[in-house]
């Protein structure tokens, strides 16, 4: 993965794999070095190598959003990124939201509004809402709908997810 910031003047080609290779992932502020096969997705690295099972694997092919995490602050489907691509980059997962045993306002709002049923898509929904509110503290209902339109919920908690997102925005505004 060559990013703009990391582009070196003297280009060095590094061949990694087949077989396990070392990757540094900065997850929720902590730096982890893991050995993974090049084909391992970020989702599997989080779940299997780091034991962070909050991001869910529901389709593993970028069609449901249950594995949504933030990569450098932007929401991505963790099943669609290779762990290797995220080498040295910062990742935020659902496990990083609650601080000092205190729920994040988005999490509080999800509970208060009952914006979940089975809860399997919930971590992904919350991360999509987080990405929205980080960017836009004053979202409209339409903004919310668009922000979570890539996150499927088979239980149909959508109306309450909308309410929870708007409530969370209010909570965050009142606390900042």
């Amino acid at each position: 993965m060559v990013t703009k910031a990391a582009r070196p003047r003297k280009r060095k080609i590094v061949v990694r794999g087949p077989g396990k290779t070392s990757v540094t992932l900065i997850v929720n502020g902590e730096t982890h070095e893991v050995l993974v096969e090049p084909r391992r997705t970020l989702l599997d690295a989080l779940r299997k190598d780091l034991g962070l099972t909050g991001a869910k694997k529901a389709c593993d092919e970028g069609t449901c959003g249950a594995c949504t995490v933030l990569l450098e602050g932007k929401p991505i489907y963790a099943c669609m990124a290779l762990a290797l691509e995220c080498d040295g980059r910062t990742i935020e997962t659902i496990e990083g939201l609650a601080r000092d045993a205190k729920l994040h306002p988005i999490q509080e709002a999800f509970i208060e509004e009952d914006a979940l049923q089975c809860g399997f898509c919930t971590p992904g929904q919350i991360m999509s809402v987080k990405a929205l509110l980080d960017e836009n503290p004053h979202p409209t209902l339409e903004d919310v709908k668009r922000a979570v339109s890539g996150n499927l919920c088979r239980c149909g908690a959508y109306p309450k997810i909308f309410k929870a997102a708007l409530r969370a925005a209010e909570l965050l505004r009142s606390r900042s």
Binding site: E95, L103, L116, T122
Partner: peptide, 8 residues
Amino acid sequence: GPERVTGK
């Protein structure tokens, strides 16, 4: 609720 919204 708390378990479900924290990924725990």
